[in-house]
Design a protein around this nucleic acid. Structure first.
Length: 907
RNA sequence: GGGCAAGUAGCUCAGUUGGUUAGAGCAUUCGGCUUACAUCCGAAAGGUCACAGGUUCAAGUCCUGUCUUGCCCACCA
């Protein structure tokens, strides 16, 4: 019999085992009509990423699910891969080039993209290697990348289809512009953060006839003006109007007048619209259609000019006159200074407001008018809303359903074009002959002349035959490829066997941050392009935070690196710890010490297994447990541990089906450590060589390892490999064994109740020993006073166990009076006496018992009160009333005994 | 401004559908190298379940309100 090493060394074990699994293709799944499929797609990490705790949690959950389902007999497919992360990756490579003083413009588009591919070859699979270290059993043979040929095909296909349907259009709209990345962003990529800014009050002179405006009327020597409040004075360079609310009495006289834009002296119209908030600022709004969404709307409504005053890098352009070339914030200061000089600056007051920031570089977003490509979302959203409402897709926890629906009901068009080079180039070509300028002013949904949508570069224009054709320089949002992930990875648009077999997938496991980015869009894409939902269940787990509740991030320096933890504690420890402290859908507050939980548990399992293996006789353990269970007459602890195992198994299986991973993990922990190790193994030590002990120890260990395997894959495999087993079992790895089959006939409430009495008795005696400071070596006597014959039987049968574990010299069981100078403990219906001649402080013991007595008396009185209540007796379920009554009877016996004892003590 | 989540032992958190004495890990105290494990074993102490009402025979659990914290969403310039 092969023995286990003295101590478990995860580092020695993990790589070896993982390589073995990989070599034997255990992770790979092909369609198999004889089996049911179970598939998960990985939320593709981006290629610039490195494994952080969020991944560790996310991927551990998925690995638990997929291993569990694989063991349950499903054809389990976990599709892995990465996404190309357009902006992030381009930034990384640009930074790298900058070290050699090279700009991407120096290289040109083609060379630069080549550089990115090179970078990706070298570093892009870091995260994949790290997932392997985590033990993830992904089907690496199918690893996909969003820029792979197949997935790129899917992107082009989808773009054409949507364009043909009129769901993709190009137009000049206000978008979120990141001046640092110099690209448009979608609304989701603009993250609102509160910023301490200021509200600046500026005077706009009124042209011509004097206007009397309440509170701002003309004083002697002053010009007439209207005061406007703004947070971004620099955008005034693009002002084309002043808007007021038609209901605003203050500005009655302003109607029909013209206002002069300070500094530039442009004439501004006065427009009236209900959109203007009477209460904000002065109630007068400067209208800058090219730089603000509300103003843009007003502009289109009233046919105003749209004057863009900024360059791509948010410096002021030629329109800004003297301010040309200044950065937006620099221009702000300069303009304020100039206004002050001209006496047109009223005041500024502190103003806290939410401002969009680039989700990649955190630069402040500039709302800006720009020609971009959009997807009309409403038609796509409708069926996706239905699918969730009808329960075809379920969220766990369910509360996310509301969040999803809320967003989907208010969905806005998706800006999908990005002014970067790394990504899927937009498959649109412009025929210069037919007229490129048709782009301007074109409405949503309209197809424009001169636009050719084609997967490959057309030779000539299909309309005019012209050859002067140019491709759109922009690329698509990375999410425009990610949203196809659940089917593009299986070969769509080709109808592959994998696609047919594994789609729709079963579970999607992800973090709340990307419900809008990814989950919602996948649902829309799945239904639109594949005609079916992409997954049935969405499990949203919490965010990993540090111990103060702050989200872990590299810039804050509060990260706990999972790879460091693996190095320090082992992969299984990391996995088990993070799972057991993560309640369903709740955020996780992490500190390094929490990984000791998993490490200690691994150590415990290792040692228990080592002990069992040291004592195991392989020839004795090949029995079939069910047959064995029927034929042998088992002792109470044996029945008990079998019952406990199957109770736990049933519970764990249920938890995994409901995505309650922490509860499953904790149930296994509790069972293995505090029931199997603390009690059963200790009890079994007495006759460990017996056939019965051998079989039970072996079977429980082997089955428990299988139950634990999804959580702690490495240590369970390592131990399992050392167990004696039949050669012709399913294979040579625990990961392809069956999930233990539930044997309901072995669950026995009676055994569990009786055994818990035994445990309580032993604990009570140990307690007395501890209270009275009796050395552990010292043998003591004890007696148990019983009331029924049934009790006598099972207590006598197990008296050797009680004696050994409580370290008793003798144990008397029967109708026994309290011996003199004995300590008392009440266990259920029983009294346990430990005579301690000369060791007890009578007064102290009296106090101890009296405390116990008052507790019980209080309880009795509350039960009596309840039982006297007619409503309770008539309305509560019968078994609750019965339980109360019998519990009361039990307590009354206890209190009687205790009082007797107190009398004996002279109270 | 809207929404969501949370407030339970010194700390971090569990607590199924309301039903006997509210649990765990860490920390604390006491005692132990008992032939697997000191990453261990045994024992103890520690809680008006944020607050106020309500529903109910019965509330940590359901409802309403209040307070505190965190998160998400949002075109008040």
């Amino acid at each position: 019999m092969e023995e286990l090493a003295k101590a478990y060394n995860p580092h020695e074990v993990e790589d070896r085992i993982y390589k073995d699994w990989e070599a034997k293709k255990y992770f790979h799944a092909d369609p198999d009509p004889a089996k049911k499929p179970y598939s998960i797609v990985i939320p593709p990490p981006n290629i610039t990423g490195i494994l952080h705790m969020g991944h560790a949690l996310n991927d551990t959950i998925q690995d638990i699910l997929i291993r569990f389902k694989r063991m349950q007999g499903f054809k389990a497919e976990w599709m892995p891969g990465t996404d190309h992360a357009g902006i992030a990756t381009q930034n990384v490579v640009e930074r790298k080039l900058a070290k050699d003083n090279i700009k991407r413009q120096d290289l040109g588009r083609e060379k630069f993209v080549e550089e990115v591919w090179k970078w990706r070859e070298e570093y892009g699979s870091t995260i994949i290697r790290q997932l392997k270290k985590l033990g993830c059993s992904c089907d690496w043979d199918r690893t996909r990348f969003t820029m792979d040929d197949g997935l790129s095909d899917a992107v082009l296909e989808v773009f054409s289809r949507l364009y043909e349907k009129g769901l993709i259009y190009r137009g000049n709209y206000i978008i979120n512009w990141c001046p640092r990345c110099q690209t448009a962003l979608s609304d989701e990529e603009s993250q609102h953060k509160d910023v301490d800014g200021a509200l600046y009050y500026i005077k706009y002179p009124i042209k011509g006839q004097v206007a009397r405006v309440k509170g701002q009327g003309k004083k002697d020597g002053e010009e007439d003006f209207v005061i406007v409040a703004t947070t971004r004075p620099e955008t005034m360079l693009g002002d084309v109007a002043i808007a007021i609310n038609p209901k605003d009495k203050r500005y009655k006289d302003l109607k029909g007048r013209t206002v002069l834009l300070p500094i530039l002296n442009r004439e501004l119209k006065i427009i009236q619209d209900g959109l203007v908030d009477l209460k904000f600022g002065t109630g007068a709004l400067k209208v800058t259609p090219a730089h603000d969404p509300v103003d843009f709307e007003l502009g289109r409504k009233y046919g105003l000019d749209e004057i863009n005053v900024m360059n791509d890098d948010a410096t002021i352009n030629g329109i800004g006159g003297d301010y040309e070339g200044m950065d937006r914030f620099e221009a702000r200061e300069a303009i304020i200074e100039d206004l002050k000089e001209r006496g047109l600056f009223v005041k500024s007051e502190p103003h806290r407001h939410a401002v969009g920031h680039c989700y990649r570089c955190h630069t402040m977003i500039e709302p800006r008018l720009s020609p971009q490509w959009f997807v009309r979302m409403k038609p796509l959203a409708e069926p996706a809303i239905e699918a969730v409402k009808k329960g075809k897709i379920k969220f766990y926890p369910a509360r996310w359903t509301k969040v999803y629906l809320e967003w989907m009901n208010n969905i806005r068009d998706w800006c999908i074009s990005r002014q970067i080079w790394w990504g899927h180039r937009i498959p649109v070509y412009y025929c210069k002959n037919c007229g490129k300028d048709t782009v301007e002013g074109q409405g949503a949904g309209a197809k424009a002349q001169g636009i050719i949508v084609s997967k490959i570069r057309p030779e000539k224009c299909p309309v005019c035959g012209g050859v002067d054709i140019e491709q759109d320089p922009d690329v698509l949002d990375t999410w425009f490829s990610s949203w196809l992930w659940p089917f593009s990875t299986f070969g769509w648009p080709k109808e592959t066997p994998e696609l047919k077999y594994f789609y729709p997938t079963d579970s999607l496991v992800t973090a709340q941050e990307i419900i809008f980015f990814w989950v919602a869009r996948m649902i829309m894409a799945g239904i639109e392009f594949r005609g079916d939902i992409p997954f049935r269940n969405v499990y949203i787990h919490g965010t990993v935070r540090d111990i103060t509740g702050t989200k872990m991030s590299k810039s804050l320096g509060n990260v706990i690196d999972p790879l460091d933890m693996i190095e320090k504690y082992g992969t299984d420890a990391l996995r088990f710890s993070i799972i057991s402290i993560t309640a369903q859908g709740q955020d996780v507050f992490l500190s390094e010490g929490k990984f000791e939980l998993g490490r200690n548990f691994a150590n415990k399992i290792w040692n228990a297994s080592r002990f069992i293996l040291m004592n195991l006789k392989p020839e004795d353990v090949s029995a079939d447990l069910c047959v064995f269970f029927e034929k042998m007459s088992l002792s109470l602890p044996e029945k008990w541990i079998l019952s406990r195992f199957y109770t736990t198994l049933s519970y764990v299986t249920g938890c995994l089906d409901e995505y309650k991973f922490n509860e499953a993990a904790n149930a296994i922990y509790e069972f293995l450590w505090h029931e199997f190790c603390d009690w059963y193994i200790e009890i079994a030590k007495a006759d460990i060589g017996s056939k019965q002990s051998q079989v039970i120890l072996y079977k429980i260990l082997e089955k428990s390892l299988r139950m634990l395997h999804p959580f702690m894959p490495f240590i369970t495999e390592e131990i399992w490999q050392k167990l004696p087993r039949d050669k012709d079992s399913r294979g040579d790895s625990i990961m392809i064994q069956a999930w233990p089959h539930l044997q309901k006939q072995m669950i026995s409430e009676d055994a569990e109740e009786k055994m818990s009495d035994i445990i309580e008795i032993i604990t009570a005696i140990r307690n007395i020993r501890s209270v009275w400071n009796i050395e552990p070596q010292r043998a003591i006597k004890a007696s148990i006073n019983i009331h029924g014959a049934d009790e006598e039987k099972f207590l006598s049968e197990n008296s050797t166990i009680i004696k050994r574990l409580a370290r008793l010299e003798t144990l008397e069981i029967g109708k026994i009076k309290k011996p003199k100078n004995a300590a008392l403990s009440v266990v259920g219906k029983l009294e346990v006496y430990v005579p301690l001649e000369g060791l007890i402080d009578l007064e102290k013991e009296k106090a101890r018992i009296m405390k116990e007595a008052s507790r019980i008396e209080a309880e009795i009185s509350s039960i009596v009160k309840r039982l006297k209540n007619d409503s309770f007796v008539s309305k509560a379920p019968k078994e609750v009333v019965e339980k109360q009554a019998s519990y009361k009877a039990e307590l009354e016996i206890q209190i009687k005994k205790i009082k007797q004892n107190l009398k004996d003590l002279g109270a």
